[in-house]
């Protein structure tokens, strides 16, 4: 069971070991499962375990002012003590971002969410933490299947509507307390 409590407006972190996990507007509230119906807490569990295994800390934030993953990640990385953010839309699309990059650039991007298995989220967590430590890890292998859109593009569009419906262009990022 995933529970999300909103705390207050996020402030820049000072802990150099801090990774930001940034999520999209409908994450865990409007949408509780990924595009392949995996409960979002299972994904977070793996992601967090990956970060912990590398000895780094994490803080959750929710970005309301955009549904664009690049923009979400870019705000997250600027708030992270380590300057590194892993950002996720509810459907499971994930990106690793660093604070000096332009929003649409990234360290690693995993665009085809239906192909991301749970163990991959753990590796993504580990790599995020490694970037946070100033290491330059081998990128996680990106899976690509050109038939994915033919099955999932419509569902991903509908999930994106849900994100858009819960977005608020005037809101600053919020710290979250996440329990699962």
């Amino acid at each position: 069971m995933l529970e999300i409590k909103e705390l207050g407006v996020s402030q820049p972190g000072t802990d150099a070991k801090e990774i930001i996990i940034a999520v999209s507007p409908a994450f865990g509230t409007g949408l509780k499962q990924s595009i392949t119906d995996v409960p979002l807490e299972e994904i977070l569990k793996e992601l967090c375990a990956g970060i912990e295994e590398e000895g780094m800390n994490y803080r959750f934030i929710k970005v309301y002012n955009s549904t664009d993953l690049g923009i979400i990640a870019s705000q997250g990385s600027k708030l992270a003590g380590s300057g590194i953010c892993v950002a996720m839309q509810s459907r499971g699309t994930t990106v690793i971002h660093q604070k000096d990059m332009v929003p649409l650039d990234n360290l690693e991007l995993f665009p085809q969410s239906p192909l991301i298995e749970l163990d991959m989220y753990r590796t993504i967590g580990k790599n995020t933490a490694k970037y946070g430590k100033g290491e330059n890890p081998e990128p996680v292998e990106i899976l690509n299947d050109y038939m994915v859109p033919s099955k999932f593009l419509i569902k991903s569009t509908l999930m994106h509507f849900k994100e858009g419906g819960m977005a608020n262009r005037d809101m600053a990022p919020i710290d979250l307390e996440v329990t699962f």
Partner: peptide
């Protein structure tokens, strides 16, 4: 039947 299908949703332009 591996393809995705959806009904319409006029209000949002789908």
């Amino acid at each position: 039947n591996k393809d995705g299908f959806s009904y319409e949703w006029e209000e949002v332009g789908l």
